[in-house]
Structure formats: C-alpha cells, structure tokens
C-alpha cells in the first residue's frame, strides 16, 4: 500500500521568547492508503497541532509534509487551499455545522466551491442516504442530536471524495452509542481506501485503529 500522508522532522513551536515551547520536535509519521491511524497523547501534547499541519491549515517551523505525493510545506496559500479542497476532509470535535443551513445544505456546502469535482452533489445526496441521514438532512443542526450532527459532518468531509480524512477528537462530544456509529463510519472510510488519521483521547477509537501512535515530547512513538 502506498504512503499517502508523509511527515518527517516536523517542528512546531508555540509562543515566543521565554514562553516559547516546541510542541512538535522532529515528529515523523507515515500513513498508508486504507489505514486508520489513531494518535493519542496528553492534553497540550500537540495532537491538534499535528493535525493542522498535516491538513495544510498551518505551516511547520521545520520538516516536510506530503499528501498523496504532493509537498505541503513551502507552497502558497492559494495552492494549499486547492490541496485541501481536492485531497483532505476534516472532521471536528465540535462538528462545526453552519446553524443557518439544513443538514443537507451543510453536507453539500463544499460542493458549491469552484473546482468541486463533477458529481460531488450527487455523491453528497448518496452519502446522506447511505448514512441514514434523510430525516436529519431536512433539519437544522440545533434540532439534531450530537451523533446526527457528527455523521453529517463526516458526510460533509467525504463529499469531495478526498483520499485523506483527518479527525480531531471525532467522538469527544458524543455518547457511547453515537461514538460507535462514528467510528464505524471512519473505519468504512479507511476500507474504501482512504488514509484516516484521528487524534483522540478515547479508548474506543484506539481500539478501532489499525495503528496507535503516542505523541510525547514532540515526537510520535508506537503505543
């Protein structure tokens, strides 16, 4: 299986002067196609920072990142924007559904972007159906349970058919049953050939992962 997410020697510091702290200090990570990898670590260990760097939302101070063979570091904002649109889907702990839009509108939101692949909207509707979200799709987020909201968020992350799915505490805000459904969806996404990386505190996520890495002292170790 090909390596889709490749990060080497990642360094990232927060703060300046005496308050500066290296949250990532030479971190290295390879995730293959179809693999679900969980990253664990204590609060403030840099898990979310790692995810943001891999998702081209932030730039490392040093090191290199490539997604699907495309280098992320050293590229312009415009190029990074396009890379995110084509290659990366995000799932967040707080769902980040737009409250003014219905579930379906939230799922289809990325398909309205210029450069969205043809058939993305049809794929979105199919995802809604496949995930059993027809009823939720007609409602607005505040009328839905946390589990329904996160499933809609996963459908939104998959609607552009990205090869990489990055999840930040995907079950952190859900009850056990809802969390289990979300994990099944992430597992299914990996089985479809996607590289899925989830940062988590939850044991259920690590149990469902192919590999578990622990982030400590700015580096990733097998847990």
């Amino acid at each position: 299986m090909a390596v889709v997410i490749r990060a080497d020697g990642l360094v990232k510091a927060h703060g300046t002067g005496p308050a500066a702290r290296r949250v990532l200090d030479g971190a290295r990570l390879h995730v293959r196609e179809g693999e679900l990898v969980a990253v664990v670590g204590s609060s403030g260990s840099g898990k979310s920072t790692l995810l943001h760097l891999l998702g081209a939302l932030d730039a490392p101070d040093a090191g290199s990142i490539s997604i699907g063979g495309e280098r992320v570091d050293g590229r312009s904002q415009r190029e990074l924007t396009e890379l995110r649109r084509r290659r990366i889907g995000f799932v967040f702990q707080f769902f980040h559904l737009v409250p003014e839009l219905t579930g379906a509108e939230n799922v289809l939101l990325p398909t309205r972007l210029r450069g969205a692949p043809r058939g993305a909207a049809a794929r979105g509707r199919e995802l809604i159906s496949r995930l059993g979200l027809e009823e939720a799709a007609r409602r607005r987020p505040h009328q839905l349970s946390g589990g329904e909201q996160q499933r809609l968020a996963i459908a939104r992350a998959l609607v552009m058919d990205p090869p990489v799915l990055l999840a930040d505490e995907p079950t952190g805000n859900l009850d056990g049953a809802s969390g289990l459904i979300v994990l099944q969806l992430l597992r299914a996404a990996a089985q479809e050939g996607r590289s899925v990386l989830a940062v988590t505190h939850e044991a259920a996520v690590t149990a469902a992962a192919d590999r578990v890495l622990e982030l400590a002292d700015g580096r990733l170790h097998a847990a």
């Binding site: 998702g55 924007t81 396009e82 995110r84 649109r85 995000f90 980040h96 990325p110 972007l113 552009m160």
Partner: peptide
C-alpha cells in the same frame, strides 16, 4: 469565525 474557518479548511478561496 468557526464557520469561516470551516469553509477555509474545506478549500474555500479568499474570493469565497
């Protein structure tokens, strides 16, 4: 800002 950040994370350009 969360909504705008979400759009940016999904690949929305400055124009969007």
């Amino acid at each position: 800002r969360a909504t705008l950040a979400l759009l940016r994370s999904a690949g929305a350009s400055h124009g969007v």
